[in-house]
Simulated assay, not measured.
Amino acid sequence: MTHSILRIDASARAQGSVTRDLTGRIAALWPAAHVRHRDLAADPLPHLTEDWVSANFTPEANRTATQAKALALSDSLIDELRAADKLVIGLPVYNFGVPSALKAWIDHVARAGVTFRYTETGPEGLLTGKRAILAMASGGTQAGAEIDYASTYMRHILGFVGITDVTVVAADQLALDADASLARALDQIGELQAA
Rank of each mutant, 00 (worst) to 15 (best):
A110M: 15
L45A: 08
I163E: 11
T23M: 05
H34Q: 15
H47R: 09
Y118K: 00
Y149V: 00
Y153V: 02
T115C: 02
A14R: 14
A135S: 12
A178E: 15
V35K: 10
A194T: 04
W105D: 10
Q173R: 15
A27E: 07
R111A: 04
M154W: 10
L186P: 00
L127I: 14
E80S: 13
L22R: 09
R13N: 15
I78V: 15
A104D: 10
T141R: 06
T2W: 01
R184N: 12
T49I: 05
H156V: 06
S76P: 00
A135W: 08
R82M: 00
K130C: 09
P99E: 13
G90A: 11
G139Q: 08
T164F: 06
L45V: 07
G113M: 09
R36Q: 13
D172P: 10
E50H: 09
D172Q: 09
T23G: 09
L182N: 10
A65I: 03
Q15T: 14
A70F: 02
D85M: 06
A137M: 03
T66N: 01
Q193E: 15
I189D: 08
P99W: 13
A183S: 13
D9W: 01
S11L: 02
T128M: 02
E124S: 06
D165V: 09
A70W: 03
V161A: 01
D172H: 13
R111E: 05
K86S: 00
P46C: 12
R25C: 02
P44Y: 06
A72L: 05
E146W: 08
K130W: 09
A65K: 09
A180C: 08
G122R: 07
Q15C: 00
Y118L: 06
A194C: 00
R82D: 01
L91F: 01
L48Q: 13
G159R: 11
T49R: 05
S17G: 08
R111N: 05
L182T: 06
I8N: 01
A170W: 10
I106W: 11
I157Q: 02
L22G: 12
I106K: 07
I5A: 04
A145R: 01
L73A: 09
L91G: 01
T19R: 00
A143S: 13
W52Q: 07
L158T: 03
A183L: 07
R155P: 00
A137Y: 05
R155D: 03
G190W: 02
T141L: 04
L87S: 08
F57L: 08
